[in-house]
């Protein structure tokens, strides 16, 4: 959010004040994100409590291997993102760009796997709506659609955040190759880092909630 036309925007007194503002702004933004995902989690909890068996049944239609693979991918991407921030603090341009590309690659992998998963659901007619088909217990127009509804809503909203994150990474790479960052000014890298970690943490909650219900015993 800092001004891209020069490190210090006119209304700040110092780079430090600007950095502190950006950081507080980012954290506040992440709190709003928590509240927004929170609304979805609340609905999920209510309906899982209301229809525990159907949520377990729905969960068995998710691909646990792909889900676990994606979890690992995202955790590693968080590591590479942290390394990029570290490199930025040291002002090492080549390493920033390298780690950012790596993070982008891992994020892209995650999204690619997600596309594969979504297309499986599409193939199996598990997309809620008119073409939904369900062969297990329970009424196909009833609550079982809620499980898949929440699956698509939660992972979909997460994927939207991933896509935005990927865009931000590209923006950083462009800035870094123009040599905009230095050991004194690396605020954008750190802010995107915070965002990226947040999006990863959301997935850390989504994976067990959606994929692992009823597989603990």
């Amino acid at each position: 959010m800092a001004d891209s036309h020069g490190p210090l925007a006119h209304h700040f007194d110092s780079l430090e004040q600007q950095y502190e503002s950006a950081r507080l702004g980012m954290w506040t933004f992440l709190i709003t994100e928590v509240m927004m995902f929170g609304g979805l989690f609340l609905g999920y909890v209510v309906y899982r409590t209301k229809y525990p068996d159907l949520f377990v049944a729905g969960s068995h239609h998710l691909d646990i291997t792909l889900g676990a693979f994606n979890t690992v991918v995202l955790i590693v991407s968080s590591l590479t993102m942290a390394m990029a921030v570290h490199a930025a603090q040291e002002g090492r341009r080549a390493r920033i760009i390298g780690y950012l590309w790596l993070t982008l690659l891992l994020g892209g992998t995650f999204l690619g796997v997600k596309v594969v998963e979504y297309s499986h659901k599409f193939h199996d007619h598990l997309i809620p709506g008119a073409h939904f088909q369900w062969h297990g217990a329970g009424d196909p127009v009833g609550p079982i659609q809620l499980f898949f509804g929440y699956y698509f809503l939660m992972t979909g909203l997460h994927a939207v955040h991933m896509i935005i994150g990927a865009g931000l990474l590209l923006w950083l790479i462009r800035l870094a190759s123009k040599n905009r960052f230095s050991a004194e000014f690396f605020t954008p890298v750190e802010m995107v880092g915070l965002y990226w970690h947040f999006v990863d943490i959301v997935w850390i909650f989504l994976f067990p909630l959606l994929y692992l219900i009823g597989r603990h015993g």
Binding site: T32, G43, G129, P143, Q145, G149, L153
Partner: peptide, 26 residues
């Protein structure tokens, strides 16, 4: 943000027919 997601859920329910708030479908 909670209002935003709640209002979005209504739109999604109308568009897809997932019974998020309609008791007739769960």
């Amino acid at each position: 943000p909670v209002l935003a997601i709640t209002i979005a859920l209504i739109a999604i329910e109308r568009a897809t027919g997932i019974g998020i708030f309609d008791p007739a479908i769960g």
